[in-house]
Each structure stands twice: as structure tokens, then as C-alpha cells.
Nucleic acid binder design. Structure first.
Lengths: 185, 185
DNA sequence: CATCTAATTAGATGATTATCTAAATAACTT
DNA sequence: AAGTTATTTAGATAATCATCTAATTAGATG
């Protein structure tokens, strides 16, 4: 997802994530009100209301007009509408990537299990094992057919237990085997 | 607005009003994830992620299934959709009335200015003056025509400055006058 | 000009809560 | 059974933020 939209949504939620601010929105939806009236009905002090209104105003959720001494606030329905629409598309949020972040998790797994180019161990957890296996298999060529002897030699560069790794390749469907010959799929 | 909906919306906003929780929603929208993976990508510790997921789970925004050791969380799109819809109707929020609240403001004004049945002063602010004037005029009968003398007598019960009050009645269009006779409009 | 009223700003305080470490639980591996 | 891994729970700490009082600004009234 777009970084900008993410931050907009976040501040939108923060703005409405307060009981009194949400009530303010409700009251202003009815009619425009002075600060004093809002304070009385919410049973909190004017400065507090002022503070809340300032926050809502930052997001253009409310606007203010002066009438003599008093400041009349009213709801900015358009802004509210626009943001509500974005909320509806919340499901389309992808992970915000502040960095090349997408595979941060996988890179960490690789870093944890690879010591000077060799596998310190074969991860017990299926998810991590798969990360390792995909990384290994990626160093083999597509289309090429590898005799078992060759696969073994390749795997032994990384770990003594080439048999287990070979078996895992098959089980995870990363490779196919026929007559002791292996290839990627 | 419905008190229940109000509280649902409030907790919805509170749930999403945190940077990391919002990111979690984003990541889970892509695919289901383990706690460890989420923690790694967010660069925070597992217990923290666990805590956030628990909050999201309270609102049924995410659900969890166990696969061996690991807990895989995934987004509950339905709940999200339902709540988003409510957000869209935010504008229809009326003030939540924890009490007969609607005129709490006006009742406070009356309380502030009426001491033992008499006006302590005539409010300077237009908004408050109107509250007082409407209360006063409400004690006069509809349709009836009051000679100025009678109006004065009535007003003097509440305040020495009946002349100002009379003038205000006219200015605010609460009464009409013709040949020194007054009536409500 | 002096006064009053409504609102805002400044600054302090207290409550909430995101985050961490350490310990407990649960499920899998050997 | 013993050890390892993933998660959760408990408890402590620190940051955020809602709220208050006191002081300031701006407008209106007399």
C-alpha cells in the first residue's frame, strides 16, 4: 500500500479513537455548535474541547467560523466521506515497506542458519525449512537434470545430511525424481 | 445514535489507531502469517505482536489456527467489511445521550442565570440571551394579545429592565408589536 | 478606555497503553 | 524422557495523550 494513504488512515483512526472526539463528531453532525455548548454537554472543560477540535481540524474533519466572540464549529462531511471510502478498501492494504522489507523475514532465517556459507543445522520448523530449501534449490539450474551423485555433491557443500535435504526437495515439491535423476519443478 | 453502535465504532477505531496494529492488518491481508514472521518484519518482539493480535482477535478482526507449534493468524475480512460499512454511515451519528442530554446546555444556562426565580442578569452573549428569552416567552400564552403594561408587569417579576427584554422579544422575532400591543409569533 | 465574555495557549498531572524481559505453556524432535 | 521451538502470560517501564488550571488573546459592550 501507498505510504501516504497508510499515514492518512492512521491519523484518521487516531483522531476518532477517543470517546469525546467521537461524540464531538456526533454532535456536530446534528448542528454547528460553540465550544462552550460542546463543553457543557460533554461535561468537560472548554480547553479540553478546544484541544480536541484542534486535532479534528488538522484533518479537515471540522471547520470553524467566527460569529462575534464565539467560534462555531461544524462538521466537514466531505472529508469524512472521503476517508470513510478509504477505510472500505482497507483489505487492499499491503504491508507498508519502509525498506526493501518484503523478504525481511526470509533473509533473517537465512542469516540465522547460514554460517560462513554452510548450514549450521536444518531448521526443525517447516516454515523455516522451506525458506532454506527454496534458497538452496535456487542455486540449481532450471531444465537441467541432475544425477543423484551430483545433487549430493552440491548439498554436501552446505550440510552433511544431504539425504534428508534430498528427501525434503521431493516432499516439498521443489524437485522431481525419476531413476535417481533430479530436476526442478 | 445507537449506544451499542457507538461503542463498537469506538473500539474499532481504537483497535486500528496504532501503527503496528494497522500494519499487522496490512500484512495479514496479504497472507496468513506466524507470530514470529510478523515480529521479524515489524522489528518488534513476539510478546508485543501477541498482545496486538489478542486485541484484534477480541473484535474478530483476525482469527488463528494452529499448525504444529506455530499459530497462523489471518484476516477476518467479513468483520472488517461490516465495520467499514458502519464507518461510512458516520455522518448519521447523532449525539449519544447518556442522559436526557439534548438540552443539557440550555438547562445549564437557565440554572446559571435564574436565582430564586429571578434573572441575576441579562446574558451578554446572544446565544445565552436567546435561551432566556425563549424560556420567558414560553410562559406567555399563544394567540393572546398583551398590552405593554401587562408585558411590563410580567417581565418585572424576573428583572428590573423590562424595557430591554421587551425590545429583545421584538428583535429576536419571538413577539410582534402593534400599537403597544404584543403577541407571540 | 475599562470591562466582560469566549476561546485558545501553556504547562502540569495522571491515566492509558505499547513495549520489553523473564517465566510459563504447549507442541514437536530425538 | 529430555531438549528444542513457538507462543503466550505476567509484570515492569516508558511514552503518549486526555484532562485540568492558570494565563493570554480577541472580540464585544458600555
Amino acid at each position: 500500500m501507498d505510504q501516504l494513504l497508510f499515514e492518512q488512515l492512521l491519523s484518521f483512526f487516531k483522531a476518532l479513537a477517543d470517546e469525546n472526539r467521537l461524540k464531538l463528531i456526533g454532535m456536530l453532525a446534528e448542528k454547528e455548535c460553540s465550544v462552550e455548548e460542546l463543553a457543557t454537554r460533554l461535561k468537560i472543560r472548554e480547553p479540553t474541547v478546544s484541544h480536541h477540535l484542534a486535532r479534528l481540524r488538522e484533518l479537515d474533519l471540522v471547520t470553524m467560523r467566527k460569529e462575534g466572540n464565539t467560534h462555531l464549529y461544524h462538521l466537514q462531511a466531505t472529508s469524512l466521506h472521503k476517508l470513510s471510502k478509504d477505510v472500505l478498501s482497507l483489505e487492499s492494504i499491503a504491508a507498508p515497506d519502509p525498506e526493501p522489507n518484503e523478504d525481511l523475514w526470509e533473509r533473517k532465517v537465512l542469516k540465522d542458519y547460514l554460517q560462513e556459507g554452510r548450514l549450521s543445522q536444518i531448521p526443525a520448523s517447516r516454515k523455516k525449512r522451506e525458506v532454506i530449501l527454496r534458497w538452496l534449490v535456487n542455486q540449481l539450474e532450471w531444465e537441467k537434470r541432475y544425477p543423484e551423485k551430483e545433487i549430493n555433491a552440491f548439498l554436501l557443500q552446505f550440510h552433511w545430511d544431504s539425504a534428508t535435504l534430498r528427501r525434503e526437495f521431493i516432499m516439498t515439491q521443489l524437485m522431481m525424481r525419476e531413476n535417481n535423476v533430479y530436476w526442478r519443478i
